[in-house]
Design a binder for these strands. Structure first.
Lengths: 363, 363
DNA sequence: AGCAACTATTAACGCGCGTTAGTAATGATA
DNA sequence: TATCATTACTAACGCGCGTTAATAGTTGCT
């Protein structure tokens, strides 16, 4: 437990004052410093393996150099979130350049206000990114008035907070249109999450809107709410099947949930896409490797992360961008899981999985 | 930008000194305080919405209340890591109880020493957890001497650092034994990562050891190194298939990689498990939902996380546990992807996916 | 009353750093 | 030589808090 090296030590070794050390190491040009002196200081710092104490620096400069990523979801849901790594990946990458740190935090429903306040007032962080908050999050109002930059990943209608999101409604419309164009008229829908999560509401919105524009009746019985994870997808798909409602296609607003749906469909003896076409959402890496490959809508978590970070950076610099929210484009990637209604026969002629499986039905 | 509320404000409102406020809010019992006074202070703090400044607290108490999770991997690999969410989930859950924060950091190969030093010397964190470091990590030596508690997720032979890991060797042996017991003798192996990652080396070790014990010759040409993600699994499986080496089973040391292998096998017209049995590793949630369901070895990321955290906590309290490393048990979960060699016909009689697919081969 | 033994509270210092206001030294100009 | 700007640096304060050593106030005992 060797004594900690302080800037005073560096100053002593370099034969200058602590102030000079600070100026040199922080590149303060307002007070000019002779190059030789600066060099002496740098050498001394290196010699002593000096690293300025983060807390002291934060206290004095009023900047923690940390940004917070707040996840509005309980740990058990975090565990199976295939999207989180992408977000983190993008954020960590961006943060490295500015040598900032990432503080991870989750808030349990009901504790949002408390948590937000603590984070901002205690000044743990310089800015925060809110991941997929719920519409009914009571803490958001407080954040609008907090004196700390905030960027929301996801859209919160009526909120004055800056936000970054994909155009969920349009994307969902595109996905459903794809199915409509393939001739499907009975299209079920499984949301990605409970409706208090805005993305779920919006994607459902897009689903409805696409049906409406195509003159197809909206049937509430064809809609199910999943809950982020595979299991919920499995459960809801099963529920759809057992409801005896007719449908030839499903729009599943999350690839992860869609994987559960795949499983339930398979278990029920229904083939994709022969019996049921499936369109997912998110385009997770697995989408192009699963059998059959999953038609999906690209959403780059990394892009969202980077865009959020850029926006946050501008806010932290004191700029007030003219826009309140950034909307990222999406793109439908048709794959094997969706095809024209009624068409049977060899699927995926173009690629893989053609004979991945054998014939259990035949015995 | 309202002025920040300090403990002095609370003291003023409560009509006591700042010291008393500190004693009350930090539950310092060494100096007794009259209950009524304490109550007054608490009320004042609540009234003012007082939250102690994190940096100041850290500086004064020499405790940041943050622990660091350091990922020895570049962001592009982080993006597709299905394991990370589990780790985070477990950690976040555990941290909440002690109201600690989680600082996320990644180190790029070559920058380990620098990063570790900065993190410890700058005292960003009170303790750190190292996720899957590489065997050739040059910074580990420095950490052994750093005056900060460190727990390594994964085993580093010869290191004096405390660690938590599953018994990779035994687990891999079990997985391969399972295949051997099913009659397989030509068993390929795809590692989960490059060999500098200890888990990869160890799992390969277990593979070799199981073969040896069973008197089966080890054929280097049957081994491939994957690289965490699905793509690499796809590539390496393809490489195996194209090598024209005979094999009736594969041990894939990561479920994620195995998903890529599934895809490559399907593309090549090989059925699982009729043509090739597959055993994975990690037992990710998807394992029991994919078709065919994937035989795997359970590794609970959350357990690892919690165990690591517990160990770290003890270290931070100054305890020196008698043991240096914790080894977590694993369990093989047989599913549909592995079966007796040569046996054909209906698979997975017990559960789902029986007729998930139809008969493309027949036309 | 006188002393000890508490109990309740506070003044004051230090944590390590950023930063402003100020000083000393040097050169340029009148 | 006196005056002033410029350069190169430093003394000293403050950030907000934890904590020790010291100080009043109270009670118990002889």
């Amino acid at each position: 437990m060797s004594r900690r090296v302080t800037s005073q030590d560096v100053a002593d070794l370099a034969g200058v004052s602590r102030t000079t050390v600070s100026f040199v190491l922080n590149n303060v040009h307002r007070f000019s410093i002779r190059p030789e002196t600066a060099e002496k200081v740098r050498l001394a710092a290196q010699e002593l393996d000096y690293y300025p104490n983060a807390s002291a620096k934060a206290l004095a400069s009023n900047q923690t150099k940390n940004i917070g990523l707040i996840i509005s979801r309980a740990p058990q849901y975090i565990a199976s979130d295939p999207f989180l790594p992408q977000i983190l990946s993008g954020l960590l990458d961006a943060l490295k350049e500015n040598s900032q740190g990432l503080l991870l935090e989750w808030v349990e429903p009901g504790q949002q206000l408390q948590t937000y306040l603590e984070l901002t007032r205690a000044h743990h962080i310089d800015g925060m990114i809110l991941m997929t908050p719920r519409l009914d999050d009571p803490g958001l109002r407080a954040l609008e008035e907090a004196d700390i930059p905030v960027v929301v990943m996801g859209y919160i209608p009526g909120s004055s907070l800056h936000s970054v999101d994909v155009d969920n409604i349009t994307a969902a419309e595109t996905a459903v249109n794809h199915l409509l164009e393939l001739g499907h008229r009975s299209i079920a829908c499984i949301t990605n999450a409970a409706l208090p999560y805005t993305s779920a509401t919006q994607r459902l919105e897009g689903y409805k809107s696409a049906l409406k524009k195509a003159g197809v009746e909206f049937i509430p019985e064809l809609v199910r709410e999943a809950d982020f994870d595979i299991q919920s997808g499995y459960r809801q798909m099963k529920s759809l099947i057992e409801s005896a409602q007719e449908f030839t296609a499903v729009f599943v607003a999350s690839d992860n949930v869609a994987l559960g749906a795949y499983s339930a469909l398979g278990e029920a003896g229904l083939s994709i896409p022969e019996d049921v076409s499936v369109v997912g959402f998110d385009d997770i890496p697995l989408a192009s490797f699963i059998t059959p490959t999953l038609t999906s809508v690209t959403v780059s978590g990394q892009e969202i992360a980077i865009e959020s970070y850029n926006l946050l950076t501008r806010l932290m610099r004191g700029e007030m961008p003219e826009f309140r929210s950034v909307t990222l484009p999406t793109r439908l990637i048709p794959r094997e899981s969706s095809r024209e209604i009624g068409r049977r026969g060899k699927r995926g002629a173009e690629k893989k999985s053609a004979n991945f499986v054998s014939c259990f039905n035949d015995q």
